[in-house]
Amino acid sequence: MLNVGKIEEGLVLDHIKAGKSMEIYRYLQLDKLDCTVAIIKNARSNKMKKKDIIKVECDINMLNLDILGYIDHNITVNIIQKGEIVEKMALHLPKEIKNVIHCHNPRCITSIEQELPHIFVLADEVKEIYRCKYCEEKYSKKASHDK
């Protein structure tokens, strides 16, 4: 099996659904960071059979982790300091997400004004419903999973 070394300071995103790591790489804008990033695809997992892992060696404040809660709240976020796990962060659905999902309402102002950020606000945490900040168009996270 492929071995990737320990990191000294940063975070390890574990239990990423197999094949989803590149999506997370893009959402977290890891391409813009000048630090070591390791992406492990299709690693063996007892719990998930196959999983992806991302290791990032950087100051954790440089990353907006809220978005992870939206993408998949089952991801384990391990905070690493001096080579050891010091904290496992719980993920929640973020209150607001920007430019992650796009409003498909043809009557929404974002449909004609391209420079506007697509902002969705959490309207119902239990039902995982977001609404467009401009037109209030509903976006159900559960429904999008079911597709």
Partner: peptide, 22 residues
């Protein structure tokens, strides 16, 4: 278009009244 008044309000230094957005 829906949300136009919200866009206006978020950039405005004067009060905006939504007189209908779609």
């Amino acid at each position: 278009k829906e949300g136009a008044a919200y866009v206006a309000a978020s950039r405005s230094s004067i009060p905006i009244i939504n007189a209908g957005d779609g």
